[in-house]
Design a protein around this nucleic acid. Structure first.
Lengths: 129, 129
DNA sequence: TCATTATATTCCTTGACAAGTATATACTCG
DNA sequence: CGAGTATATACTTGTCAAGGAATATAATGA
């Protein structure tokens, strides 16, 4: 359980994080809102705390948990290496759809401001099993 | 193995994705570059393919694998709900560091009451929105 | 002090999954 | 055709994490 990716692989932990994004919450509040048992909530919160996703402060007998930003930034950094790739694909899709909108011979107005070069047709190929 | 988050929880799969971001590659190339056994590579590629992270085309006896954008966009969408939160924190940290840079007085002494401290060295890079 | 509330922890069982080994499938070329 | 190459799959095993039940710890208030 070392990486941030393993931490968020667990659905209940993602639910807890999504809950905490709007407000801090106590264990009992999380327990009721997400309909999980109390030990389950506490155990997931421990994992999240040790991974730096949340921190807690004491309020009488309660403990209030709230998000910490660092692991999210780390995920975003990892994702960034793919961002250029996928946005290129989105652009290609946009150009394709733009062209579909136009009658095939004449294309009077350019909606997308990108370049309209089309060097390579997509390899559209089926999968089998 | 349902969600995209479980897929990328596995370090070898993340390595494969990171390798494919620059170029498509055959199973054998992945095997050599990442020093994994061939069945391990094939099995991870199967998982990645079924989850929509990669697609393959046949080139003689080889199969060339390349990335597909959709799951990355899905991750980005999930991450987006936290982005407002963490950028607010980055802004707060920046303001704090800006204030530290000022040689001015008006330094309140003991300010924080209860907080889990988090030592963070400042990496200097000025950026404003 | 005791009772109550809130949370953390321990023990146990179960299931998922990753890797290794062996084998199967598929394509190419002589 | 057979040999060689490239990839996929089957089967087994070890590890590890998630959840349930019970219990421990801690703070509050009477």
């Amino acid at each position: 359980m070392e990486s941030v990716f393993e931490i968020i692989a667990e659905p209940n932990r993602r639910a807890i994080l999504a809950l905490l994004v709007s407000n801090q919450a106590s264990v009992g509040e999380i327990e009721r809102q997400l309909r999980m048992t109390q030990p389950t909530v506490s155990k997931h919160l421990r994992v999240l705390r040790e991974a730096g996703f949340v921190e807690s402060t004491v309020d009488a007998q309660r403990r209030l948990y709230r998000l910490k930003p660092e692991p999210f930034q780390e995920m975003d950094t990892w994702l960034a290496q793919f961002r250029r790739f996928w946005s290129a694909h989105v652009d290609a899709l946009e150009r394709y759809l733009d062209r579909m909108d136009q009658p095939q011979s004449t294309r009077p107005k350019g909606k997308s401001s990108k370049k309209t070069s089309q060097p390579k047709p997509r390899t559209n190929q089926g999968e089998k099993k």
